[in-house]
Write a protein that binds this DNA or RNA. Structure first.
Lengths: 367, 367
DNA sequence: CTGTTAGCGCGTTCAA
DNA sequence: TTGAACGCGCTAACAG
């Protein structure tokens, strides 16, 4: 056990938070000859304490370095002022700028409202992930939860709905449960992207899809297929490859696409990271992105703007979404009624250099 | 106030955690006709409870869905089993894959030891950042802290040292305080990088430095200068530009360098993100990276391998560093003595396409 | 205005 | 083998 010396007075005659452990209300009360209650109320700013007493208490608290014990307060208040956030990381590492921005948005908004943020990183759909959710909820560690990257038949949402704990999701669900959520309109986004390519003369579009259990992938794919159908176009099965959302995944998928004959004239990637990988693959093959073959992404993460060529993509305000989701959750926790429980954001098309008009002649790979 | 119904029995005759709030030890005790103490001990696995009693308790606990209240336990145990981690984000967003990997490493290691992770994102050297540290410590929210990206005369470290709270840093310090830390040997790293370029015939090296208050930047710069001096080379002042560690920062810095006459034949960036920006700038100017001009980074984040051209850099195992730092902190918290309080890791040189032999003739920018 | 009493949920003495 | 009593640190209801 650590050394603990109690009842020692500092030079000013007051205990300070040092070896003797933190200063408590009890310490203050004893030093002042008051009851714990009075000290507590003086500090809390109640108006039923004598001004002179309050002053004495405040001074002593400052001098002795009193800081309330958050844990004790939580137990008594019955709430934790903490938000839980389990980041889905396949992995075990993750380096998707997407989550970084989201985390920053969530964290800053939480801090703004004096909420703490409890973060875990877990592989999706594993026992560990489920255990983490259960622990956060059943152990009463958090007042609410943020769920991101919703999945098909999402077990997290099904479970959360049964608990009654406030939660907000980034992403919609196919389950028969109603819950507050924010999502971008991925369907519309891919319609716009597809239209953009079709306008440029592209007819052979390939698609690097997201893992099929992710809701956002479903919407995006459906959007692309819708716009193609509208133009009486379609994607042969070999033009659709499921990627893992990483740069490497986009790279290998594109290599496969380039080996097809005829190869696509445009590659639509389900997210920016895979699109960046696609650019690499095309360049490695000797073709020129934006001329010989067009590539699009989705998200508009910072590297999209710095890639070579710069990436045509759909912009969604990830940082702001993080803030908004967090803000909604806090409102919910505080018992307020959300003015809008379901927010669908319209992404905007950002046309850059990675897309261009389709070439007339057949592709010729330079030696 | 929310609806609360107490003392209602479920279909099995037992209370369950629903509208009536979570099941507590008291509920269990009442339902079983035992004292709270006995129930507590049975659940804790003490050997002084009758086997039959224990079984009854375990069964009831399972059926009624008892889960201990973590907050109450914390108050009683006097520890939080929580680690604090304040991510320095300039801002307000951050999308440095570097921190993502670090966070994953820390988070997974914490989870492995049943520790929770309290995360904040704050702008370095601001009152908000300081307030966050104070709150975590003085409010007794965490048992220990992780400090990353140490700074010159780091106020966080100076403060932490006075508190006695366990902490581990990723990065060394110039302060007169001793504390456990892990760091990569940035000095040696830039010596190797510099030597590599010199071996390729480069004599005009430029440096995109880190903000001067960051310790890792100091080491890296010193390493580069050391190796140059050893070869009786030096960098003119205009060859050194301080960047902000972002891709955009590297981009603009490199534009400035390219406008110099003569321009450098190699650009050494203090981190990968800036190196990637440097590649963009060079390409935009029409020169070929790896032939007309060489570029190096530091960190070996995933995009470094996928860039075009791929990036020559120093690899440091960020994910593992996260794990190690977290592991050390937990040992410290649990009162163990660290076998090694100061760990200095050797980064390894990864030679890729962005560096090549210096060209003989003068640079000619294609029209 | 102030103090006494009670309780948040849990673990840990100490008796019985 | 079990239970009563107490404390962790704080807030709230109720007297006086």
């Amino acid at each position: 056990m650590g050394l603990v010396i109690r009842n020692v007075l500092g030079s000013a005659g007051f205990r300070r938070a040092t070896l003797m452990g933190p200063v408590t209300l009890k310490d203050l009360a004893e030093a002042l000859g008051l009851s714990i209650t009075t000290v507590s109320r003086a500090l809390a700013g109640y108006n039923d304490v004598a001004a002179s007493t309050r002053q004495r208490v405040m001074d002593a608290a400052a001098q002795m370095g009193y800081v309330p014990d958050v844990t004790a307060r939580r137990l008594q208040k019955g709430r934790t002022d903490t938000i839980g956030f389990v980041i889905p990381t396949s992995g075990p590492r993750f380096s998707d700028p997407y989550f970084s921005e989201l985390l920053a948005g969530i964290g800053n908004e939480a801090a703004r409202h004096n909420y703490d943020l409890l973060v875990s990183t877990r592989t999706p759909d594993t026992p560990e992930e489920e255990a983490t959710y259960r622990r956060l909820i059943e152990g009463r560690l958090v007042d609410g939860l943020l769920v991101v990257r919703t999945r098909v038949k999402d077990r997290r949402l099904a479970y959360l709905a049964t608990t009654g704990l406030p939660f907000v999701a980034f992403g919609r669900s196919d389950l028969e449960v109603e819950f507050p959520c924010v999502d971008e309109d991925g369907f519309r986004g891919l319609e716009l992207l597809g239209q953009h390519l079709i306008d440029l003369g592209h007819r052979r579009l390939a698609f690097i899809a997201a893992p099929e259990n992710l809701m956002f992938g479903v919407y995006r794919r459906a959007g692309l297929e819708a716009v193609l159908q509208r133009h009486e176009l379609s994607m042969p099965a070999e033009y659709v490859i499921v990627g893992d959302l990483t740069q490497r995944g986009g790279y290998t998928a594109t290599n496969q696409l380039l080996d097809l004959s005829p190869p696509p004239t445009a590659v639509v990637a389900c997210n920016d990271l895979m699109a960046l990988g696609a650019i690499s693959a095309v360049q490695k093959s000797g073709l020129v992105v934006g001329r010989d073959i067009s590539i699009t992404g989705f998200d508009d993460i910072p590297p999209a703007e710095h890639a070579h060529p710069t990436l045509t993509t759909m912009r969604q305000p990830i940082y702001d979404i993080g803030r908004q989701v967090c803000s909604m959750l806090i409102q919910l926790i505080q018992g307020e009624v959300l003015t809008k429980r379901h927010v669908l954001l319209q992404p905007t098309l950002i046309v850059r250099e990675s897309t261009g008009p389709v070439q007339d002649g057949p592709h010729v790979r330079p030696a």
